[in-house]
Simulated scan of single mutants.
Amino acid sequence: MPGLLRAEPLGPPQIDSPQLLALDLPTQNLADALEAFSRSTGMAVLVDRELTRGRRSIGVHGRYSAREALGLLLTGSGLVARYARSDAFTLQVPEASQPLSPKGPRAARINSSYATALQQAIERSLCRSPLTRPGSFRALVQVWIGPDGSIEHSRLVSSTGDVQRDEALVRSLGSTRVERLAPSSLRQPLTLLLMPDTTGTRMECTAREGASGV
């Protein structure tokens, strides 16, 4: 029988509370991250260890609600949380996964037409610099989009591993404008995972650079 990861809370459950918790969870094995998350938030988790084997968590640093923190922690792991009750959860593989593109950012819970417009706008901005060329790095970012489609604020949740690239990425996002009105139901900030290209077919930016005059 496969082993189970059981993590019991030390304090009262917090998952439905709007209270923001100060968290400092590094990138690590997913099983260890879940145990640390449980201790920090008061949530109980019951997960088959075979499901977490070989998976890594995203680092979570800052102030978040328990639900927001768990969503960030699981980003890129291929797993989603299923709540057994308000103070406990388990993990499962989603029935269907709909990334925007194998080579672009992934955004959840927004309609496909807006997601496509968002991806194209971000890729145009990132193509303006060799440092931020899509497909060459991995990063987790949060963006706040204004009424006119401009990204008014961005926050780097996990570093690209290069301080100079981090700064260039934030600058690039600050000059981005989405050429489509956001749906009224859009919840902000949007969390985007920028993925490295592992296929050997990195997106070519030449045409877009020429069109923009960069």
Rank of each mutant, 00 (worst) to 15 (best):
L4R: 12
A7L: 01
L10R: 07
G11P: 02
P12Y: 00
D16K: 01
P18E: 04
P18V: 03
L21V: 04
L23S: 05
D24L: 05
P26F: 12
P26W: 02
P26I: 10
Q28S: 06
A33F: 11
S40N: 13
S40E: 15
G42I: 15
M43D: 01
M43E: 14
A44S: 13
V45I: 08
V45T: 14
V47Q: 05
D48E: 11
R49V: 10
R49E: 10
R53G: 01
G54M: 03
R55D: 02
V60I: 00
R63T: 02
Y64C: 00
A69C: 00
G71W: 08
L72T: 07
L74Q: 06
L74N: 08
T75Q: 11
S77P: 08
R85N: 15
S86I: 15
D87A: 15
Q92H: 15
P94V: 14
L100F: 09
P102Q: 04
A107D: 01
R109T: 11
R109A: 13
I110F: 01
Y114H: 04
Y114T: 08
L118T: 07
Q120P: 00
A121Q: 13
I122N: 12
E123G: 09
L126H: 12
R133Y: 07
S136K: 15
A139G: 07
L140D: 06
L140Q: 04
V141C: 05
V141D: 02
W144P: 01
I145E: 05
E152W: 05
E152M: 02
E152V: 09
H153M: 03
L156M: 04
S158G: 08
T160N: 13
V163E: 13
R165I: 06
D166E: 07
L173A: 05
G174S: 07
L181F: 09
L181K: 02
A182P: 08
P183C: 06
S185Y: 12
L186P: 03
Q188N: 08
Q188D: 06
L190D: 10
T191N: 03
L192S: 09
L193K: 09
D197A: 09
D197P: 07
R202G: 13
E209S: 11
G213C: 09
